[in-house]
Design a protein around this nucleic acid. Structure first.
Length: 636
RNA sequence: GCCGGAGUAGCUCAGCUGGUAGAGCAAGCGCCUUGUAAGCGCUAGGCCGUGGGUUCGAGUCCCGCCUCCGGCUCCA
């Protein structure tokens, strides 16, 4: 048979030859260095037979940045981990051990609990295995053989997996350790040049909290020590962008243990917050949104009527009050429904777009709080659009235009990806309604070309939704904006309008938040810019530094004239050297520093830009450039 | 909520096997009178997260709780 190589040449091989045989036919070095075969674009274990006509590519240890090459390396390292764990902790039950984005993990049920201190011994054992050398062999067996084997070894999780796996069932063995595994795997341990166990965590079997909690060990591996070092350095750099570190450091906000999950916003943080709020308010107004305010606290009877109580009452902060119980609102929708329903509406009024950014409270589980990214008190740029069925598509399209506008202004478009969630098991409404609404959202996403995946059954109980996500500095995804269609809640809360046919109709409601939680959005912005905000967002846009004591008066006057022109400016007149104050301004990432001494006047200001560029400009020139910078960011 | 880890001065951290708590930066005061990324000196500052226990004696050992960190689950 013949197979096709990447350079389009053909290679003649005996029938049934494997990827490894192909490598051998080309050269001994290639055979030694190959880690997997890519056959017609799909990864395949080197040991598996090829078929005539296939396009094959051999991935080697030199392809050290190839994701597939890293996957196979880490997958094999995970097997070494399991071998080491079984040797050091006999009686451990092994579950699954896949490669993941930056490494691998393996889930175990240990006979005795282990702690992080045990990891170094396990890691040393893995190193010993590599030093000794291990070769992987692959075999395919009937299901019954696999079941028997894992029963004999008292490995219940493997028995469960083997009983569900698609035949042929493949087993990989290195040393005296055999694992049920689809592969592919390395030929032997020699390419594993650097490894590290990075962490320990609880993880539920099959991701279901009703199941046993297993112990997950995380690790990573590379083809060279330098690559591991570079990886660890990248992590260090990402940690330096952590908003939980930068926030207090830049004097934006902090948290106090007496109100977990609720930020204390400092003046500079509020400046940032308000810059976003101003943008939101201005752009909402341009698009016909009407700002409203509804109560913070409601009798829980309202949540029972809206349908939220049944599913979400655990997350409500409750306040007993006489015969009644009130709850802090976790969302604005019922209030907006009541506002709409407060009088008879005509189809001529639609669409009505209510917007509100009130404080919302949700009693999130303790273990889930995470700086500004997961809080208990937050503010959404929330809105509810009441419209007819014919208006839905236009409204949705308008929202996506709005999202694109905001992302471009804030420079975060490339961070965004989306999910479309369809009908859940427990839901309100008929299948026909769900067919329609899911279709509308899917169409809108495709028109916008936003990358997305479908999550079957993950919709809200009242309608399908689109969730917009962004990744933090560590690469963890967070849900930001959301757009949800709702044909149920308006009915429950008595929303209706009179149509052109003079009959009563139910409006559709589109729930939407584009930033999502302002808190979370600011957290992402801080990490994205590492605190180096664009001029229009910077909490302090300009700082005036009087050279000597005698320059305090003119420096103050300059600062107030900048403020009068609408810019956030302050003065640093501490008794410190100029060099020290410039250094501090740089560390605070202030875009403009104005040194003011004997040589300066309104006609000649000494301007230093963030990072060090210096120039001399008149005050009016400076204000012109401020105006230009602000306008560029959509702030005008 | 679950698993593992951590909590010492405003911040970053040191404090070995139990014996009366330390540094740098920041702060206050003084000197210097400053020209584009750290001037010098002095001073002050700590229910060692919190409640209990063991001990002659606990920052240090044990238990509960709180908060935070890494994950898991959840997230209208």
């Amino acid at each position: 048979m013949k197979v096709v190589l990447p350079d389009s040449s053909e290679l003649e091989l005996p029938d049934g030859a494997s990827g490894l045989d192909a490598a051998r036919a080309i050269g001994p070095k290639l055979a030694r260095d190959s880690v997997l075969a890519r056959v017609n674009g799909h990864v395949q274990d080197l040991r598996l037979p090829l078929s005539g006509g296939e396009r094959i590519e051999l991935v080697t240890i030199r392809d050290k940045d190839d994701p597939d090459a890293l996957y196979v390396l880490r997958h094999s390292t995970a097997h070494l981990l399991a071998e080491a764990v079984l040797r050091l902790h006999p009686g451990t039950k092994i579950a699954i051990g896949p490669p993941i984005a930056d490494g691998f993990y393996y889930d175990f049920e240990f006979p005795e609990p282990i702690s992080e201190e045990d990891l170094s011994a396990i890691e040393a054992e893995m190193r010993r295995e590599i030093e000794e050398g291990r070769t992987w062999s692959r075999e395919e067996v009937p299901r019954e053989d696999a079941l028997e084997r894992f029963r004999a070894e008292s490995q219940p999780y493997k028995v469960e997996l083997a009983s569900e796996a698609e035949p042929p069932i493949s087993l990989y063995t290195q040393g005296d350790f055999t694992d049920l595994c689809r592969g592919p795997h390395l030929q032997d341990t020699s390419p594993i040049k650097a490894l590290r166990l990075t962490g320990l965590a609880g993880a539920y079997w099959r991701g279901d909290e009703r199941n046993t909690q297993l112990t997950r060990i995380y690790g990573t591996a590379f083809y060279s020590q330098a690559d591991l070092d570079a990886h660890l350095q990248r992590l260090e750099q990402a940690r330096a962008k952590d908003h939980r570190r930068l926030g207090p450091q830049l004097d934006l906000f902090h948290f106090d243990e007496h109100s977990p999950g609720a930020a204390l916003w400092h003046p500079k943080g509020v400046a940032l917050f308000n810059a976003l709020e101003d943008l939101r308010r201005r752009e909402n107004a341009k698009r016909g949104y009407l700002e409203v305010r509804t109560p913070l606290m409601w009798d829980i009877e309202l949540w029972k009527r809206s349908g939220h109580w049944e599913k979400y009452h655990d997350a409500l902060f409750l306040i007993p009050h006489g015969e009644h119980t009130f709850g802090l609102k976790p969302m604005n929708c019922p209030g907006h429904m009541l506002l709409f329903a407060s009088k008879l509406r005509s189809y001529r009024e639609l669409p009505i777009r209510y917007a509100e950014s009130a404080s919302l409270h949700r009693d999130e589980p303790t273990g889930t709080l995470h700086g500004l990214l997961r809080v208990r008190q937050m503010h959404q740029d929330d809105s509810h659009v009441f419209c007819t069925e014919e208006q839905i598509q236009d409204e949705i399209d308008g929202m996506f235009e709005f999202v694109g506008f905001l992302y471009d202004r804030l420079g975060v478009r490339e961070l965004a990806h989306a999910e479309l969630s369809t009908r859940p098991e427990s839901k309100l409404g008929t299948d026909e309604q769900w067919d329609y609404t899911e279709g509308v959202l899917g169409t809108a996403l495709e028109r916008q070309g936003i990358p997305y995946r479908v999550k079957e059954g993950d919709g809200a109980f009242y309608g399908p939704k689109i969730d917009l996500f962004m990744d933090d500095a560590m690469g963890r995804p967070w849900q930001m904006g959301t757009i949800q269609l709702d044909g149920q809640q308006p009915a429950r809360l008595g929303c209706k309008y009179t149509g052109a046919d003079n009959r009563e109709h139910m409006p559709w409601v589109i729930h939407r938040a584009l930033f999502g939680s302002l808190e979370r959005f600011i957290g992402i912005l801080v990490e994205h810019y590492a605190g180096d905000f664009p001029f229009w967002l910077a909490p302090v846009q300009a700082r005036v530094l009087p050279v000597g004591e005698g320059h305090r008066g003119p420096a103050d006057s300059l600062r107030y004239r900048l403020a009068a022109a609408g810019y956030r400016a302050d003065v640093d007149d501490r008794d410190e050297t100029l060099g020290k104050r410039i250094r501090d301004a740089e560390l605070e990432k202030i875009p403009f520093v104005l040194v003011y001494g004997d040589r300066e006047s309104d006609d000649a200001l000494a301007v230093r830009e963030r990072g060090g560029g210096q120039s001399t400009r008149s005050l009016s020139e400076l204000l012109d450039s401020f105006d230009a910078l602000a306008a560029e960011a959509g702030s005008a």
